[in-house]
């Protein structure tokens, strides 16, 4: 009997041991997980925190003169005033160019570039997915994204000079549209791939033309995807520095390029740059909030089974 019982006893003890070990381990791994998440949060949030606090600090608080503090001691809107009006109290240097022009340039070119990329990307990816037109297009579009933009920038500059597109709103919009097109194409392609063909066939049988099926049935179904696509492409265009630097000179300088000009005889204007960053963050956030209800669905679209 004893001999028979032993293996049982042994295994019971063993199970208890493993269980307590598992609990301990899972607690520890949870703690590690949270610690890592907090760290990641801090890494992401700290620059934002820095930017926001810096934007409201007066000149002597972002120079080492009075010692650095976490929060502004004498919060001020002076940095914003300086950006919009070219001067502010307590600062002798004035600003040649205020933020108005670059802000407008960024808004116009990013919006137009987004429209170009999303419209062209949506239509072409639908054509490839549904009508199998130029199946090789999918890969050739991807090629646009495979080389570093800098590698082709000199020829592009020459071409843009030739067509008169340098330092114009349409020239910059056009290059934005072209550069972000592959992104829009591939993103929309994954969404169109998910739409069952029967839904479109049902609409066709009911008497709709191809166009009507596209805008009454397919497009509304992929609306979450479209929203995601618009936001991502807009952010890509909005944050571009290189293309704007090379293809604009004066009239249509965008915010990122403009930011780099905020240096004076007094050195880097950190406060103004932070204020500029603060302003520049608003349009994408606003756009994100506008389409928020579609966004969650759009980001998880591919993961859902029908």
């Amino acid at each position: 009997m004893v001999a028979l019982l032993r293996p049982d006893e042994g295994s019971i003890v063993k199970t208890h041991k493993t269980r307590s070990v598992t609990i301990k381990r899972s607690f520890r791994s949870l703690a590690v997980k949270y610690a890592l998440l907090l760290l990641a949060c801090a890494v992401v949030m700290y620059p934002l925190f820095w930017m926001i606090t810096m934007a409201f600090k007066p000149f002597d608080e972002w120079t080492t003169g009075s010692g650095l503090t976490w929060l502004p001691q004498n919060a001020t809107l002076g940095n914003f005033e300086y950006l919009f009006y070219g001067q502010t109290e307590g600062l002798v240097v004035t600003l040649d160019r205020t933020i108005g022009g670059p802000l407008w340039a960024s808004l116009v070119t990013s919006t137009c570039g987004t429209i170009i990329a999303v419209v062209a990307g949506t239509l072409s990816s639908y054509a490839v997915v549904r009508f199998n037109i130029l199946p090789s297009l999918a890969l050739s579009v991807l090629q646009l994204r495979l080389f570093p933009p800098l590698a082709v920038m000199i020829p592009v500059m020459v071409m843009w000079a030739f067509i008169g597109g340098v330092d114009t709103w349409w020239g910059l919009s056009l290059i934005y549209g072209i550069v972000t097109l592959p992104f829009a194409f591939w993103l929309m392609k994954t969404f169109f791939d998910e739409v069952p063909i029967e839904i479109e066939e049902a609409a066709r049988v009911a008497g709709s033309s191809y166009w009507r099926v596209f805008y009454r049935i397919t497009l509304p179904i992929v609306k979450p995807g479209l929203a995601t696509c618009v936001l991502f492409v807009f952010i890509l265009n909005w944050s571009d520095y290189l293309l704007a630097l090379l293809l604009t000179q004066k009239e249509w300088v965008t915010l990122p390029v403009y930011m780099n000009t905020l240096n004076t005889a007094l050195g880097e204007m950190y406060g103004m740059k932070a204020a500029l960053g603060f302003i520049a963050a608003i349009p994408p956030i606003f756009l994100g909030l506008l389409i928020q209800k579609h966004l969650v669905r759009g980001l998880t679209f591919g993961a859902l089974k029908q």
């Binding site: 069952p196 029967e198 839904i199 066939e201 049902a202 609409a203 049988v205 049935i217 509304p220 179904i221 609306k223 029908q306």
Partner: peptide
């Protein structure tokens, strides 16, 4: 023509 599909193809939106 009226067509009823196996997966119904309802316009879910």
């Amino acid at each position: 023509i009226g067509f009823v599909f196996q997966n119904y193809a309802i316009f879910t939106h």
